[in-house]
Design a protein around this nucleic acid. Structure first.
Length: 606
RNA sequence: GCGUUUGUAGCUCAGUGGAUAGAGCAUCUGCCUUCUAAGCAGAGGGUCGCAGGUUCAAGUCUUGCCAGACGCACCA
């Protein structure tokens, strides 16, 4: 409908003023202004006229050869407001939704293009927490949004399975583990490994406290920076625990059999644990990369950069990248004097590898905002090293999550554990359902609790735009009233319930929509029409909150429509029922499709 | 210190340079013998951090200041 109007205006402008221009059509903030509006500011530069004059002239021109679907054109100052013939407006939207069903909302803006979305990418030394949940849900939603816009999407997960962090857990397990396994202890693998990682950190802290006491240093009176420096320079080189973990890392790098064996064993525990969490969240990946395979990558590329003069070598043998003065503090080291790679070198190699594997047009990394500078350097490095595809690389940065008591800290165990959180949400959903005395069987109850609990969690996280930090309020997150996932799911369930009760009404024949002229009818219609634009907008802006907002508005519009005293559909005669049921069916489809983009299921009953 | 970023209702957050700044929660008032009340209708609540600038128009762009967050590793 919007396209039809836009091309009509475009043609008219071309005839009247002899210029080609894009048309930006808006939906008026106030319904009484009309169904669509055309702010004429957008043409004033091009036509060198005042917006109000343009609006006047254009109105005359448009009215001269107005199509029958436009009922009325009004100009209010610089705005041209259009009222669309209701019957054709409703029919067109309803027809589109019925034709496209679960594909309604999809567009072709990404047709023939591919995108890789790398997300999750956890370290394999501890279980996933709320921060990972945000990452996973965001990455998954962004993937689905791209799919809806026609892109071919590859979801990738780069597991950081190697390094000092896992060696810490390995050492603690060797020292204190007594061969404990997930089977022997009944503890989920990632939690078991995490337990030993925490044990390591605890022992290290004890050792540090003792060291400081022995040295008789008064840390409390030191500046924070000096304190860190002291610990780094004085304590760390003398730490038995750190030395032991480093030894394990060296043995791992040397390929020592026992160490590799233990590393494989513990990583396997963690992977299995992660898989369970991913499954619970309904998340899957098309491709796994492992840091243990990629950590040496990038070296050749850097050496080529040295030949071409992009990089330079210092006297000690280390290799550095020259960065532009503007925007970058210092040059960046790429290879240590012993020739080993640093973090960014691996990322350079991985970028090349990903492209070799998939030749995608876009490559998105879903990583927290604390790594923004890292990605700026990385993309600049890729550009300087001649990797043309750096243009398609994008760091989807998301903000931190605070708890009411402050920042989450994994080392201190001040985190919201992902598995526990999921269980809590599902439990809460179950309580809510039970309290409503619904006639569900045990199986239905647990299936619906699962859908609702996860819906609440996912919507809670995705309602925020990615870049904002937000405070996780356990009470609010678990609330099912107001702007929440369950509210939207509930609306869907209500529609399903209604449809079950009037299942004999046939909507396939031509429907007369002329009876739908209330505020509520029109609001809902307009929202349903907008859905494809919302999906595209959310995708372009990498912003799930746009869709979250929209879904709430749509559910809310339906509930207003539904609760009108004179609108009791069940009691109406068939001819009056039809257009209203058509609206309800359409709304159900849109809610279903929209929630699906968030990985949220739409229950038939709840 | 430098860079990036945030500051919108009591709280948590939306808000393409465009029409009278919105939502949820919380508070208050109504509505279940009724298509699922996880709902609906309504009320109160704002110096859009502060001060300048740009223009027909600024919560939105810009400069300065104030306050917070993140970053500025041969960690990842």
């Amino acid at each position: 409908m919007r396209n039809k109007l836009a091309s009509f205006i475009k043609d008219t402008i071309k005839n009247k003023f002899d210029v080609d221009t894009d048309i930006n059509i808006e939906i008026p903030a106030l319904a009484e202004h009309g169904d669509f509006s055309l702010p004429c500011f957008q043409f004033s530069k091009l036509l060198k006229k005042a917006p109000v004059t343009i609006a006047n002239d254009l109105k005359v021109a448009l009215e001269e050869n107005k199509n029958d679907f436009i009922q009325e054109i009004n100009n209010v100052g610089p705005y041209l407001n259009f009222r669309i013939d209701k019957n054709s407006y409703f029919s067109e939207v309803f027809k589109q939704i019925m034709d496209q069903k679960e594909n309604y909302g999809n567009t072709e803006s990404g047709k023939d293009k591919s995108v890789m979305v790398e997300f999750s990418s956890p370290n394999t030394n501890k279980p996933l927490h709320l921060g990972h949940v945000r990452n996973n849900l965001l990455g998954d939603a962004i993937s689905k949004l791209h799919q809806a816009c026609g892109y071919k999407v590859i979801k990738a997960n780069l597991l950081n399975d190697r390094g000092i962090h896992i060696c810490k857990a390995m050492f603690a397990w060797k020292e204190f583990g007594n061969n404990e396994t997930p089977e022997s202890s009944g503890i989920k693998g990632d939690h078991l490994v995490g337990k030993y990682y925490v044990t390591f950190e605890k022992k290290l802290k004890e050792e540090q406290d003792k060291f400081i006491q022995d040295k008789n240093v008064d840390l409390a009176s030191m500046e924070e920076r000096d304190r860190d420096k002291f610990i780094e320079e004085e304590f760390y080189p003398n730490s038995y625990y750190l030395k032991s973990a480093r030894e394990l890392l060296l043995k791992w790098e040397a390929g020592e059999l026992d160490t590799i064996e233990l590393w494989k064993k513990m990583n396997a525990w963690v992977f299995k644990g992660f898989q369970e969490t991913y499954k619970a969240l309904g998340i899957s990946f098309d491709k796994y990369y492992y840091e243990s395979h990629t950590y040496k990558l990038g070296k050749d590329i850097v050496l080529k950069g040295l030949e071409s003069g992009v990089c330079y070598q210092k006297e000690d043998g280390s290799i550095w990248l020259t960065l532009p003065k503007k925007g970058f503090g210092n040059d960046k080291i790429l290879l240590r004097k012993d020739g080993t790679s640093v973090y960014i070198t691996q990322d350079i190699g991985t970028a090349f590898l990903k492209y070799q594997d998939y030749k995608m047009n876009k490559s998105i990394n879903v990583v927290g905002s604390e790594q923004e500078y890292h990605f700026q350097v990385l993309f600049k490095a890729l550009e300087l090293l001649g990797f043309e595809e750096y243009r398609g690389c994008y760091h989807l940065s998301y903000g931190m999550i605070y708890l009411p008591e402050g920042k989450m800290k994994s080392r201190e165990g001040k985190v919201v554990d992902a598995d526990e959180l999921i269980i809590e949400m599902v439990e809460k959903a179950k309580e809510e359902i039970i309290s409503r005395n619904r006639p569900f069987t045990g199986e239905e109850l647990s299936s619906i609790s699962n859908i609702v609990g996860l819906g609440a969690l996912k919507y809670y996280v995705l309602q925020y735009s990615a870049k904002t930090d937000f405070t996780f309020d356990p009470k609010a997150s678990i609330d099912f009233n107001g702007k929440t996932g369950p509210y939207i799911q509930y609306t869907h369930a209500r529609i399903c319930s209604l449809l079950r009760q009037v299942s004999d009404v046939d909507l396939s024949e031509k429907i007369d929509f002329s009876g739908l002229n209330s505020q509520e009818d029109n609001n809902l219609l307009k929202l349903l029409e907008q859905f494809p634009y919302i999906v595209e907008k959310a995708c372009i802006n990498y912003n799930t909150s746009i869709l979250a907002e929209y879904l709430y508005d749509t559910a809310s519009a339906f509930n207003s429509f539904y609760s009108r005293a004179d609108n009791r559909i069940k009691d109406m005669d068939t001819e009056r029922q039809k257009p209203r049921l058509a609206l309800a069916v359409s709304c159900k489809q849109v809610i279903n499709n929209g929630l699906a983009l968030f990985g949220i299921s739409s229950p038939e009953q709840m």
